[in-house]
Simulated scan of single mutants.
Amino acid sequence: MAFLKHKIYGKLFSIFKVFPLKENKISFIIDSNQSFKGNLDYIKKEFERQGNFEFNFFYKDKISFNSFKNLATSKYVFLNDNFFPLAFMKFRDETEVVQLWHAPGASKKFGGSVCSPEELEILSMASENTDYLITSSKKVEKEYIEAFQIDKSKIEALGLPRLDYYFENHDLDKLKSEFCREYDIDSSKKIILYAPTFRDEEKYNNIFDFLDLERFNEVLGDEYVLALRLHPKIKNFYKDDISSRGKYVDVSEFESEQELMLISDILITDYSSIMIEYAVLNRPIIFFTYDLEYYLANERGFYYDFKQTVPGPIVHTSDELIDIIKNSEFDKSKISDFVMTQFDVIDGKASKRVVDFLLK
């Protein structure tokens, strides 16, 4: 049935190829919740700086005849996530279809590294209809070839456009002050951003079954506040509310994940690729992996040895987590070494490199 739906997309799309292509038209394929929009925003800004372009957003779950027409007549088409109907959408030769992918580097296995034979086939077909796949480093080429089932010749290591954010002129004091006012937080406190990923195994998705929030606040509450940001897909993997009677700030709906990272002093995560981007800030990262052995044995796995490679201490219990923060036990050299395995260049010019490459 899934293939049938994707084929219908392809048939509808082909109808609108009778309309002439517009050299200055750009389309972005996106979810309606816009959860992975970061790279697309920065590419749009760079095109605006370089010329007069017309922009359209093709929402995957809100299709219309007009959206298909805009897509079919675009010179450039950008994706930031998987879109299986692309397997059956034959764009004209003049159109450039570019996959930016929302996550930096290569960490948790995804796509062709973990999917079923049926998904592998459609993934390969989608990659045949993709002109370029942009990555953050040549060092992750092998992993992306496998994940996207794509030919090496289509991969361009031009950097992660959304990383340009950190090179803009931000007033950190103002950002933190506004954040603290919005969430009624004492601005003198340091912010610990907790950003866990989702698990396929539902019982491990309620982090408050494993984090002793009362003890956390008792020991660290005078100096720190905990800001929890759940993965946008968590609702697909946990049917109940994730809540606790203890004190914390829920920033899951906060618009800018990058702003949260910028104003945070410490990141707690587990298996999420957010740690790759946060590592660029050279700030402490703690890996709270209460289900590590189960995860390594039963879930997607990693492109590297997790225990040996991640840029920060790995803890399994609340007490270990609290002790690490209390005693500031962090090795920043491990962070910088890790960053070098995930990025070729970090200079705030990734968006420009991508747009220059396409326009030239």
Rank of each mutant, 00 (worst) to 15 (best):
Y224E: 07
S336K: 15
K25C: 07
F338G: 00
T317P: 12
F216I: 09
V249I: 15
I185E: 05
D184I: 12
A106P: 05
S272Y: 02
K360G: 15
N52G: 10
Y303I: 01
F357K: 14
D331G: 03
M340C: 13
F302S: 04
N298A: 06
R300E: 05
Y303R: 11
M275N: 09
D41T: 07
Y194T: 02
S113N: 09
K45N: 05
K334I: 06
S351K: 09
Y278E: 05
A103Q: 12
N70H: 11
D319S: 15
D171M: 03
I286D: 01
T309W: 02
P20A: 03
T317K: 13
K109Y: 08
S67T: 13
L163W: 01
K190W: 05
E178P: 03
S74K: 04
E320M: 11
D270C: 01
K22H: 12
N24Q: 06
E320L: 10
L158R: 05
I325Q: 09
L71E: 03
L100V: 11
E119Q: 12
K5Q: 12
Q50A: 03
L172E: 07
E119T: 07
K5E: 10
V355S: 01
A126D: 03
G10S: 02
F210M: 06
T95C: 07
F210V: 05
S256P: 07
L211V: 12
L163M: 12
M275D: 04
K332E: 13
M261D: 09
Y204Q: 01
L292W: 00
R92H: 14
I346K: 08
E121N: 10
K75R: 15
Y183I: 01
R245Q: 12
L281P: 04
D209H: 15
Y248E: 10
T197N: 06
T73L: 00
D337R: 14
F57V: 13
S32P: 09
I274V: 15
P232L: 08
K108Y: 02
E277S: 15
E143D: 09
R199F: 03
A72Y: 00
N129V: 04
E121H: 12
K142D: 10
Q34Y: 12
F28I: 08
K5R: 14
Y294W: 09
Y9N: 09
K176T: 10
K203P: 00
F83M: 08
A157S: 15
W101D: 05
P313R: 13
A103P: 06
F28W: 12
S113T: 08
L160D: 07
